[in-house]
Computed example of a mutant assay.
Amino acid sequence: MRQLGREAGPVFVSLRKGERLTQARLSDKSVNAVVQRYLGPSYSAHSLRASFVTVAKLAGADDSEIMNQTKHKTSAMIRRYSRLDDVRRHNAAQKLGL
């Protein structure tokens, strides 16, 4: 997807005067500071990653697709990051109509 004149590269980059995008990747601390500034201290950059995994799982992505994006090494880490603990809403039996 092309956005703001960019087709590839890091998602979180710094801006220069006049709101010009750079190719300079923001550090993890910078991303964390931005997240906490706009969402509050109970959120972190880690929250973005966990949210991505959760939303991707809800959209039907399999573990290997998510792992390709997040660079997690195991499906166990994907399960740990996903926030799908509500067994009434997220269970295999429902997909079978049970």
Rank of each mutant, 00 (worst) to 15 (best):
M1W: 10
Q3S: 10
L4C: 09
L4T: 08
L4D: 15
L4R: 10
L4S: 12
L4K: 10
G5E: 00
R6V: 05
R6T: 06
E7C: 06
A8H: 12
F12W: 13
V13M: 03
L15C: 03
R16H: 12
R16A: 14
K17V: 12
G18A: 06
G18D: 06
G18H: 04
G18Y: 02
E19G: 00
E19P: 03
R20H: 10
R20Y: 10
L21M: 02
L21A: 00
T22C: 03
T22M: 01
T22A: 01
Q23N: 14
A24K: 12
A24N: 13
R25K: 11
R25A: 11
L26M: 15
S27Q: 01
D28Y: 11
K29H: 13
N32G: 09
A33Y: 10
A33I: 09
V34S: 07
V34L: 15
V34Y: 14
V34N: 05
V35A: 10
Q36T: 04
Q36P: 02
R37T: 13
R37E: 15
R37V: 05
Y38T: 00
Y38K: 04
L39Q: 08
L39K: 12
L39D: 01
L39E: 07
G40N: 00
G40K: 04
G40T: 05
G40Q: 05
P41V: 07
P41L: 05
Y43T: 04
S44Q: 00
S44D: 06
A45C: 12
H46V: 10
S47P: 01
S47A: 12
L48I: 08
L48F: 09
L48N: 07
R49W: 14
A50N: 12
A50T: 08
A50L: 10
A50C: 09
A50W: 04
S51G: 15
F52T: 00
F52W: 08
V53Y: 09
V53N: 06
T54M: 04
T54S: 15
T54P: 11
V55Q: 15
V55S: 15
K57E: 07
K57Q: 10
L58K: 15
L58R: 14
L58D: 08
G60L: 07
G60H: 03
G60W: 00
A61H: 11
A61P: 03
D62L: 04
D62S: 09
D63Q: 01
S64R: 09
E65P: 05
I66F: 05
I66K: 02
M67Q: 13
N68D: 14
N68F: 08
Q69G: 04
T70W: 02
T70I: 03
T70V: 00
T70C: 04
K71S: 00
H72D: 15
H72F: 11
H72W: 03
K73P: 02
K73N: 01
S75E: 14
S75P: 05
A76R: 14
A76T: 13
A76F: 08
M77K: 04
I78E: 12
I78D: 14
R79H: 13
R80Y: 15
Y81M: 10
R83C: 12
R83M: 12
L84M: 12
D85N: 11
V87R: 15
V87E: 15
R88P: 00
R88F: 02
R88W: 02
R88D: 07
R88I: 05
R89G: 06
R89A: 10
R89W: 05
R89Q: 15
H90T: 09
H90F: 13
N91I: 09
A93G: 07
Q94Y: 11
K95C: 00
K95T: 07
G97S: 13
G97A: 11
L98Y: 13
